[in-house]
Simulated scan of single mutants.
Amino acid sequence: MLTGKQKRFLRSKAHHLNPIFQVGKGGVNENMIKQVSEALEARELMKISILQNCDDDKNAVADQLARGAKAELVQLIGNMIVLYKESKENKQILLP
């Protein structure tokens, strides 16, 4: 579980990132969760955008992705999700 200070730090780091994945009409599936998990192992911090045509609730989408990838939900603002997961082999971000 991340503290408020750590979440603020990660939000500031994620501000300049571009979204890597998009959740669209198909919603969240196993393949997407696998790809998100692999990308988090490589990057630790990433943005995912939710498209207008997504039928699912954005809170449910964020929760599904975070649980599936075993990551921390840093922020859900508008249609943008920020996820963080500490990398086992490629550690780049040092939390305060």
Rank of each mutant, 00 (worst) to 15 (best):
M1L: 10
L2F: 01
K5W: 04
K5D: 09
Q6P: 01
Q6H: 01
K7F: 07
K7R: 15
K7I: 15
R8E: 15
R8W: 09
F9V: 03
L10M: 06
S12L: 13
S12N: 14
K13S: 09
K13D: 06
H16F: 14
L17S: 03
L17T: 05
N18Y: 13
I20G: 00
F21Q: 07
Q22W: 11
Q22L: 11
V23F: 05
G24T: 04
G24V: 04
G24D: 05
K25M: 12
K25E: 13
K25D: 11
K25I: 13
K25C: 09
G26A: 12
G27W: 05
G27E: 03
G27V: 03
G27P: 04
V28W: 09
V28R: 06
N29A: 08
N29K: 09
E30D: 12
E30H: 13
E30C: 03
M32V: 11
M32G: 07
I33V: 15
I33L: 12
V36D: 01
V36Q: 01
S37P: 00
S37R: 09
A39Q: 14
A39C: 10
A39Y: 13
L40V: 10
L40R: 08
L40Q: 09
R43M: 13
R43F: 10
L45R: 04
L45H: 06
L45I: 09
L45E: 06
M46I: 14
M46W: 04
K47F: 02
K47V: 07
S49W: 07
S49G: 01
S49R: 14
S49I: 10
I50Q: 06
L51A: 13
L51D: 14
Q52L: 12
Q52C: 11
Q52D: 15
Q52H: 15
N53M: 06
N53P: 03
C54L: 05
C54E: 10
D55M: 13
D56S: 11
D57I: 05
D57L: 06
D57P: 01
K58D: 11
K58R: 14
K58M: 10
N59E: 13
A60L: 12
A62N: 07
A62Y: 07
A62W: 06
D63N: 11
D63G: 10
L65F: 06
A66N: 00
A66C: 02
G68L: 02
A69S: 15
K70M: 09
K70Q: 11
A71F: 00
A71H: 00
E72K: 03
L73V: 02
L73C: 01
V74P: 01
Q75A: 12
L76T: 04
I77M: 10
I77T: 10
I77P: 00
G78A: 03
G78D: 08
G78H: 00
G78N: 06
M80E: 14
M80D: 10
V82W: 05
V82Q: 04
L83G: 00
Y84D: 04
Y84C: 03
E86P: 01
E86N: 08
E86R: 13
S87E: 04
S87W: 07
S87R: 05
K88H: 13
E89R: 15
E89F: 11
E89T: 12
K91P: 01
Q92C: 05
Q92S: 12
I93H: 04
I93V: 11
I93C: 08
I93E: 06
L94D: 13
P96R: 02
